[in-house]
């Protein structure tokens, strides 16, 4: 586990450098880095309310990050987390609304499961293309994001649009109350989806470390030829991994709908870059499920803190983007270097 410690050290170093670069930008803008970071701290984790807000933002980031990270662990560059999440969110909202007349528990289960299945389907499609047609998955997953986003926009704006309130927004009807996750800290947005964000990393860790399927997946990620020679069925493993990865991304969408928006709201995922923050969190965590929880929360807190920063000081919100960009650049370089070293 020496290597894991090393990876944690590297991640912390990346964060420290990013904060230092951010401080430099604040200095150039003729402001005090200390004040800026203090405001960032206060508005992200400095109060119960801020903490709850950060945690709420973190929930879908963590879960979608886990999903994408799972595929990366197996050597499959699933860049389609965004599309899979959108499909999951839309499906949960639509199924939840359509089945509102059924008993609450049944509606709940069916809505969540269908959200996961929609995400899985959106991920299995490129997996099948890769396996049977040799179309690179890294390209198709990325392109399917646009297809998924535009499809959802169309559906939310026309056939599935909520006509009841006379709203001009592209959104679907509100989901039944049985599907709305309860708030767990009063007077804050923090909802019971937190438990999913805590349990999902443990579940993924269990899958990878304690099951033979997870073993086959990890070995495929470490050396695909080795796994194949040992009898791991490669096509099946690729499709299964992408299904699980997409299901987690779909779950992230379902949690967003059930905990925050209570309906599918157009552009509630693309603009906040939730899926990409999730991938960044996963990369920063070295694709380790438990560390993804920590890094996901960190990136969410940065985003929450950004708005408070802008209110309290003259430093613009963009400081947060600078910090995030530096972190991502460094993590990407580390992964690239690691790959080069491994290839020798």
């Amino acid at each position: 586990m020496r290597d894991r410690g090393f990876a944690v050290g590297e991640a912390l170093l990346a964060v420290a450098i990013a904060l230092a670069v951010g401080a430099l930008f604040v200095l150039i803008a003729d402001d005090s880095p200390a004040t800026a970071y203090e405001a960032l701290w206060t508005s992200s984790v400095g109060s119960t309310n801020a903490l709850a807000q950060s945690m709420t933002t973190a929930i879908p980031i963590i879960v979608v990050g886990l999903g994408m990270g799972l595929a990366f662990r197996v050597g499959l560059f699933n860049l389609g987390g965004e599309g899979q999440m959108i499909l999951g969110a839309l499906t949960t909202a639509v199924v939840g609304h359509a089945l509102a007349s059924l008993p609450g528990a049944i509606t709940f289960v069916l809505a969540v499961v269908s959200g996961c299945l929609a995400g899985a389907a959106w991920a299995v499609l490129p997996a099948l293309w890769e396996v049977f047609l040799r179309v690179p998955l890294v390209v198709t997953t990325l392109l399917l994001n646009y297809v998924g986003a535009l499809l959802a926009t169309y559906l939310a704006a026309y056939p599935l649009r909520d006509e009841s309130g006379g709203s001009t927004l592209a959104q679907t009807a509100e989901i039944p109350s049985a599907l709305q996750l309860p708030i767990i800290v009063p007077n804050t947005p923090l909802h019971a989806g937190l438990f999913a964000a805590v349990l999902a990393p443990l579940g993924v860790l269990w899958l990878l470390q304690r099951t033979s399927l997870g073993y086959a997946m990890r070995m495929t990620g470490l050396n695909r030829d080795f796994a194949e020679t040992g009898g791991v069925p490669m096509k099946r493993t690729i499709v299964t991994t992408m299904a699980l990865s997409g299901a987690l991304c779909g779950l992230a969408g379902a949690l967003l709908v059930m905990g925050q928006t209570y309906r599918y709201l157009d552009d509630s995922i693309v603009s906040p870059q939730t899926a990409w923050s999730g991938l960044a969190a996963s990369m920063l965590a070295g694709f380790h499920p438990l560390f993804t929880f920590v890094s996901g929360f960190f990136l969410a807190a940065l985003q929450t803190g950004g708005s408070g920063l802008q209110l309290a000081t003259n430093v613009p919100l963009q400081l947060v983007n600078v910090i995030q960009a530096v972190i991502i650049a460094m993590v990407a370089v580390r992964l690239w270097l690691g790959r080069r070293v491994l290839r020798r």
């Binding site: 099951t211 033979s212 070995m219 080795f226």
Partner: peptide, 22 residues
């Protein structure tokens, strides 16, 4: 073998399918 996997994991390959739980 997979260099980055442990020695035990490398020795398991091929016989890991016997049960779902590892």
């Amino acid at each position: 073998l997979a260099r980055e996997a442990t020695i035990a994991e490398n020795l398991l390959m091929g016989t890991h399918r016997r049960r779902f739980r590892l």
